[in-house]
């Protein structure tokens, strides 16, 4: 297994290191400016966002004992999207241009993600709630938030609608180093807290009641993961919009590659998630000459068939990792 871990780390590092150099020629001062001030911070943003979404997805799948649990299925992403769309529609009414409205969009996206996650965490912290109840509550909240979001888009004018659609497709913006510094504390808290819970999450794999008997405070663990997950995902969505499939698909890929032990799987989800989003963003930059695709389109285009393939592969009994 050590070989596989090293290979995946090397692959991810190679993708991340190569990404800024791929694309239009970087000769001269302008090339150097593009590399240092646009592409490198953008790849670093992909590392932070990809790593966070994957780690949160892996933790959600553990606390819900469900391979379909992810920020997008427990409502975190939908809450953030709704918050951002409220900002997109409300900004012109408040006399704020959309170009200057980014802080407002970010703040409301974050609040939306946090409110939904707190609601789910409140349900989870009631000891009586079963895992599937919580997941169903998340799906219901996602559907409700999606319906309200559609209603908001319907009532928006053309400019607002374009901004809303562009935002909801998910993209890695040109935020520069200032943006990175702003998002970094959220990610640091998210990574630090979630990775510190590895032992409890590993014990939870034996079943909720068994973990309780072995000393894990399951309702508290679930609330902590949901709360901290909201912090990380809310920050990602606020800056980049809802980037689909990363939190769902990357943990599956890691599990197949290095096994289900959370001791390895959680840090490797960060590593592979970072590399995966950096690769997807590079594809999004390069695939259509002269313009960029939103990275969410690329992650969906790769993630959806990959997920179907993984499900079919696991269903046929070949998804179980064997040690090498």
């Amino acid at each position: 297994m050590k070989t596989r871990v090293l290979l995946l780390c090397a692959l991810s590092a190679a993708v991340i290191a190569a990404s800024p150099w791929l694309g239009r020629s970087l000769e001269g001062d302008s090339g150097r400016f593009i590399l240092e001030n646009l592409r490198i911070p953008r790849v670093l943003m992909a590392v932070l966002v990809g790593g966070t979404l994957s780690l949160v997805g892996a933790c959600y799948q553990t606390i819900f004992a469900n391979p379909l649990a992810a920020p997008s299925t427990v409502g975190t992403t939908a809450g953030a999207t709704l918050g951002a769309l409220v900002a997109v529609v409300a900004a012109p009414a408040l006399g704020i241009s959309l170009a200057n409205g980014l802080p407002m969009i970010a703040a409301l996206a974050f609040i939306g993600a946090l409110l939904v996650s707190l609601a789910i965490a409140a349900i989870a912290s009631r000891g009586k709630a079963r895992v599937n109840d919580i997941l169903l509550a998340g799906i219901a909240i996602s559907l409700a938030a999606g319906a309200i979001s559609t209603g908001l888009q319907f009532s928006a004018d053309q400019v607002q609608l374009y901004a809303a659609i562009q935002w909801t497709l998910g993209h890695l913006p040109q935020v520069g180093y200032r943006g990175l510094v702003m998002i970094l504390p959220f990610m640091a808290i998210c990574w630090g807290v979630l990775l510190s819970q590895t032992r409890a999450l590993q014990t939870l794999l034996g079943g909720e009641e068994r973990a309780h008997s072995q000393g894990v405070n399951v309702p508290w663990l679930r609330s902590l993961v949901l709360g901290v997950g909201a912090l990380g995902v809310g920050a990602c969505v606020a800056w980049c919009g809802p980037i689909a499939f990363i939190g769902l698909i990357v943990p599956h890929m890691v599990r197949m590659g290095v096994g289900a032990s959370r001791r390895v799987m959680l840090p490797m989800s960060v590593v592979l998630g970072a590399g995966f989003l950096a690769a997807c963003d590079t594809v999004a930059r390069l695939i259509v000459p002269g313009r960029e695709l939103p990275v969410g389109v690329v992650t969906s285009a790769i993630g959806a068939p990959l997920l179907v393939w993984l499900v079919v592969r696991q269903g046929s009994g070949r998804g179980t990792h064997k040690s090498s």
């Binding site: 004992a65 590993q202 794999l205 034996g206 079943g207 068994r210 599990r255 096994g259 289900a260 032990s261 179980t320 990792h321 040690s323």
Partner: peptide, 8 residues
């Protein structure tokens, strides 16, 4: 005993 995931 639950063995939902293939741990050693």
């Amino acid at each position: 005993s639950a063995a939902a995931e293939p741990l050693s």
